[in-house]
């Protein structure tokens, strides 16, 4: 009851007339357990309760989990999945690429099969969250690849995202199983990601939660807002509106720009912690990338 009361306070009970707010009570992260496992459970329950129309195992479909019109368009496009070209290109790059010491990328991060499903993870050795694309970049940096040849958001992005697409396909069907070990640094990284998700920012004063939690399934213009579960499962995704394959960090950056704030740099600690938080929420969902999106 106390929880409900303060949630309503935040929502501004004073004037709630018939708005289109989907949930009847907002989810206030401060009123929920800080323990990651319990927090994630409450977070998922918010969606299960407010959106009973979405089957629990369909959250990995983004908006297609509940937007029937978009789904039929999606099914038509998926007759010849445009992702396949990217997967093929990525496979070739993965096999042909050599680090300066003559070894392939697998010598650094391991074999392709199931690799994507191992990310993101917390590494107790350096106390940091690791995400797949950033580890590929670091393989190159640590092996002495010249600065202007290292893949990243600015250069070699197509190679990076193609390899990412290939690696996603090699983990297709595996369930997300991200761990937040009992290490204060891991919990701090999770909390950091959580904070970024809920914090209002930018000139427009939006938080990720504003769009993907409190107003999930509603529309901004013609854009249907997906929910807070399944943010990470399909990435990288091919966006047919842009005719481009994009990584998760690139997507985060786009949404941050939409709030008119200065986005965090891709593969910065902030982005990695945000990915860690959202991937942990996705535990139990099936990896189904590289996916197709509008």
């Amino acid at each position: 009851m106390k929880k409900l009361a303060s949630a309503l306070l935040i929502a501004g009970l004073g004037a709630s007339i018939a708005t289109a707010v989907a949930g009847d009570a907002k989810f206030n992260p401060l009123n929920n357990p800080s323990n990651p496992a319990e927090f994630a459970k409450e977070f998922r329950n918010y969606f299960y309760q407010n959106f009973p129309q979405i089957p629990h195992d369909k959250y990995n479909m983004g908006t297609y989990a509940f937007d029937k019109d978009a789904l039929s368009q999606y099914n038509d496009l998926m007759e010849f999945p445009p992702q396949n070209d990217y997967i093929a290109k990525g496979k070739k790059i993965w096999e042909d690429y050599r680090l300066p010491d003559g070894k392939p990328l697998s010598s650094c991060v391991g074999d392709a099969k199931g690799l994507r499903a191992k990310y993101p993870y917390f590494n107790p050795k350096d106390g940091k969250v690791h995400i797949l694309e950033d580890d590929l970049i670091n393989c190159q940096k640590n092996a002495g690849v010249p600065e202007d040849k290292v893949w990243g958001p600015k250069q070699g992005y197509n190679d990076l995202v193609d390899v990412s697409a290939y690696l996603a396909s090699e983990s297709d069907g595996i369930k997300v199983n991200v761990q937040v070990p009992n290490d204060p640094r891991a919990v701090a990284a999770f909390d950091h990601g959580k904070q970024i998700f809920f914090r209002k920012t930018g000139q427009l004063n939006f938080s990720c939660a504003d769009c993907h939690m409190y107003h999930a399934t509603q529309r901004t213009r013609a854009e249907v807002l997906h929910t807070g579960i399944g943010n990470t499962t399909g990435f990288p995704v091919f966006r047919y509106s842009k005719q481009k394959m994009i990584t998760l960090n690139n997507r985060f950056e786009g949404c941050m720009r939409d709030t008119r704030s200065i986005p965090f740099k891709q593969y910065s600690t902030e982005m990695k912690d945000l990915e860690y938080f959202l991937a942990y929420i996705d535990n139990g969902q099936v990896i189904n990338g590289p996916a197709l999106r509008k």
């Binding site: 306070l9 935040i10 929502a11 501004g12 009970l13 004073g14 004037a15 709630s16 907002k26 209002k200 000139q203 427009l204 004063n205 939006f206 504003d210 769009c211 409190y214 107003h215």
Partner: peptide
């Protein structure tokens, strides 16, 4: 809009944030 609807409201503060 935060004055009327509370600080959680999604509507941007058009004047206060100089939009």
């Amino acid at each position: 809009p935060r004055k009327k609807f509370g600080r959680g409201v999604i509507m941007p503060p058009m004047g206060d944030h100089k939009i």
